[in-house]
Nucleic acid binder design. Structure first.
Lengths: 234, 234
DNA sequence: ACCTGAACACCGTTCAAGT
DNA sequence: ACCTGAACACCGTTCAAGT
């Protein structure tokens, strides 16, 4: 019952006050704007409250606690994911297009990937994305149990990859650490240091998606055993 | 230069005071204990300082800021990863054994996966793990460019998977959300709801590792093009 | 009854004042 | 010169006092 999407927001009185009344929608909008401008730590309850011109205590009836607000903000942002993917020809291309759109949305605002990583609660837009991916995977020829497990793997990889890209972390330091790896202590890293640092991000991301999709297609879950799935459909 | 492993720690005077002198090692040990007991937010600079009986300002010369302390704690914890993997027969089994050990270490203490996710800085134990994985991938028949990109993919997946497991997040709510998906709004989720929730965690994790490894083996990077890698060895 | 200012119990980081 | 207590500028959350 901790899912903030389930909790009805407090209603403002009819014929309300002169000032624009507070609402969950207004709060989430303000929070998303703050996130875009200042990143995740800029989106504090106190700053959001200030942005809608009230005290921090007033947000609680509308969005619950900080985690609730974050879940609402994430799902609002994911409304921008393009799940149509209609233009591409092959199903695999459509699948990659949806995943790329999801990744692009996460990368658009600085703190979004951080919010998405542990997926605090699933809202309607996240559900739409999940549903689309499941559909494309099944259309692509995966049996249902494999598609169900694969969608988790894909989500996790794309989200964590976006998180890695988002957090600047001065790639400098990693580069320096890898370049500085001695052949004595870390022979494989030393030998592969050029390759470890090679390639542009989109190139690597695209390769990784292809690798995961290829692997998923080649590893049907049902071939071993799959416990609780009820029907062995198709 | 922000890598805390590079910064020499302040030296305590020879023939120091009566009380056990402060040191980076003592601080990191205390912090790791705090992490184990209270989780990530229990490991605040103030609490760590209290644990070593000093004021919060005193930690700065030894570990830098909070991020520095977190990087040191993570790497210390990763010392426990078993990179030998000697017992298993096949190379793929050895690879999986190392990844499972890494995952197990992350899952042992509540906040570790959170620390590892964005990999703030790479310490010696992380490097050892990276080196081992690279070696096993190359032994397994991957060309060097592919192994270099694959190790990133594997790291990201295993770490984010551990993070997902660690953060309790009351799986209840996700279960309820997926169970409650209407056939009208989310047809694929509705149809696959049993499969989405099926399987034990280790089973799913093992399957995902196999899928990723299979995909990686089937998708050599060099087959397309791989920009900056210098030599096309082997 | 609803709303919210002020209070509470924390943070990370800095800096001046002490030894 | 080094070390650190106290101060600074924040947090999320609660609750009593106001309307």
């Amino acid at each position: 019952m901790s899912n903030p999407f389930d909790r009805p927001e407090a209603l403002s009185r009819r014929g309300g006050p002169v000032k624009e009344p507070l609402s969950r929608d207004r709060i989430v909008t303000a929070a998303l704007a703050l996130l875009a401008e200042e990143g995740l730590e800029g989106m504090s309850l106190r700053k959001v409250a200030a942005a809608v011109e009230t005290g921090p205590a007033s947000l609680y009836p509308y969005v619950g606690d900080l985690e609730g607000l974050q879940a609402l903000v994430l799902d609002r942002a994911l409304a921008a994911v393009d799940t149509s993917g209609a233009k591409r020809r092959g199903r695999r291309e459509r699948l990659k297009a949806v995943l790329l759109s999801y990744s692009a949305v996460l990368l658009e605002k600085p703190g979004l990937a951080q919010l998405a990583m542990p997926a605090p609660a699933i809202g309607p837009h996240t559900m739409r994305l999940l549903d689309t991916l499941l559909g494309l995977l099944e259309e692509g020829g995966l049996d249902r149990p494999t598609a169900a497990w694969a969608v988790d793997l894909l989500f996790l990889y794309v989200t964590s990859s976006a998180l890695e890209q988002t957090r600047g972390h001065d790639p400098r330091s990693h580069v320096a650490t890898i370049r500085g790896a001695s052949a004595a202590d870390y022979p494989h890293v030393h030998a592969a240091r050029a390759e470890l640092l090679s390639g542009e991000v989109p190139e690597r991301f695209s390769w990784a998606l292809d690798a995961v999709l290829t692997g998923v297609l080649a590893c049907p879950v049902t071939s071993s055993r799959q416990g609780s799935g009820r029907k062995s459909s198709r």
